[in-house]
Design a protein around this nucleic acid. Structure first.
Lengths: 249, 249
DNA sequence: CGGCTATTTGAGTCTAGTCAAAGCCTGTGG
DNA sequence: CCACAGGCTTTGACTAGACTCAAATAGCCG
């Protein structure tokens, strides 16, 4: 738990509660993601091998190259997953939120890093223990395969974006996709409250901060979005946004 | 089986033999990939639900958007998987060869297209039947989860490449990675016999044909590789190639 | 009210894309 | 066996979209 790899350090995690089945009762992710595949008694068993953990904003909780001893399931908050090059270039491979499972992209060691964008609460599972859970509840393993399938689809979509789309198309794709995840409407326009900075966006979309800013300006001038303060973006013309993101016009 | 989606058409496939257990005896993929997870008698059962199929060079055998009724396991040959944008831009998401499993990135429909780069032989499994196999042999399902995990790692590595690496770094990464897959040595130099064209390479690496050509010229001038005829590339300085591909030099 | 960071905007540069043409290979057919 | 057609690859010249560097602005937090 105190492993030091490169210049990074495994973040100390704050254990709030362990082994309590009631921890699922008010979990944001209870009815999505992995846990939704379980009946109440199965969930009880799963909870018995889970450790609930809180991670403060900005804290890294997975370091690439560290031995992959644990899986995580996010209950609350958003985190970024990323891969770095030796000279500091970073590619964010995904943003994860409530219900998302972390740790599939690992063999003996984690093949990615993870850091909280907001205060994050998650359930941590020991890999060895989870294997025992699989043996008892094949439904979980099957669900995990579905999760992996879905992540593969997302990953390939992202390859298309990174390899072939223009800056404006990338930003439109992202906003469109994020809109599907967390949508709150207000006066007809969908209002996105993004947990990430422009820099995170740039590292996710294979661009620079400046290009992100200019692309948003372009979409704003076209009346597709409105850019507000504090990472708020309103989607004024959803159909147009989708079309741009999918390179249909 | 005669579905027409967009302007593409499901390729007619040539059934060579069906339901014969002996078909595994001389399969290139018998001891790699999915089938390696099985004991002989389990394999016998798996073979009973497999259809062996031959696909000619250049023929597409999966169309994005078609109902995903089948999984495939490649026995021999190489194919490309890809996603297209409406205006023709294409991103190849991966090359698959003997032992590779195709079809994980699908829900109700395939989320990618596939086309043979060389004559391909594969085993085709009906999705419903494969589910029955899972129930009987959990080992296969577990192996499939490992396969999906591994593909996720590869996909994220590719995102790093597409989002953050330069043209020369991308080409070096590719040659380095391909060298690990199929390596035949000759006079100290590893000789790669690529089944894909420069255009395929470009569509895989998020570049254009011309840029691929120039990047190869750069690596050649640096004495890292030798570029021969008929898609043959010799790796003269493997260490340097790896370093360039991982942006360490 | 500052101090700090994040974001936007501007000016100039550079990497990779586009357009064009020549060279090579392959495979075919005389 | 050689000539030719067609596709693939390489090279050159120019362009463009995104990056870099720099500075101004805006927002957040104590």
């Amino acid at each position: 738990m105190q492993n030091t790899i490169g210049s990074l350090r495994r973040a100390p995690v704050n254990v709030v509660a362990g082994g309590v089945p009631e921890l699922c009762a008010q979990c944001d992710a209870r009815h999505i993601g992995l846990c939704d595949a379980l009946h109440d008694d199965d969930l009880h068993f799963l909870a018995s091998v889970a450790q609930q953990v809180s991670i403060e904003k900005g804290r890294g909780f997975v370091t690439e190259g560290d031995p992959a001893r644990q899986f995580f399931n996010i209950n609350h908050g958003t985190a970024k997953l990323f891969k770095d090059l030796p000279d500091g270039r970073r590619q964010i491979t995904g943003f994860v939120g409530a219900g998302d499972f972390i740790g599939l992209a690992a063999n003996a060691t984690y093949m990615f890093g993870a850091e909280a964008l907001e205060p994050v609460q998650l359930c941590s599972f020991d890999r060895a223990e989870l294997r025992a859970v699989f043996a008892r509840f094949p439904a979980i393993e099957r669900r995990l395969l579905d999760v992996a399938s879905h992540e593969l689809i997302i990953a390939q979509e992202q390859m298309l974006l990174l390899g072939r789309k223009t800056a404006v198309e990338r930003v439109a794709s992202f906003l469109d996709g994020w809109g599907l995840r967390v949508a709150s409407c207000q006066g007809g326009a969908t209002r996105l409250d993004l947990p990430m900075t422009r820099n995170d966006l740039a590292e996710y979309l294979g661009l620079t901060v400046e290009t992100i800013s200019r692309a948003l300006a372009t979409l704003r001038k076209q009346g597709v979005v409105a850019v507000g303060a504090d990472h708020v973006i309103s989607i004024l013309n959803p159909a147009r946004l989708t079309a741009i993101g999918q390179a249909e016009g």
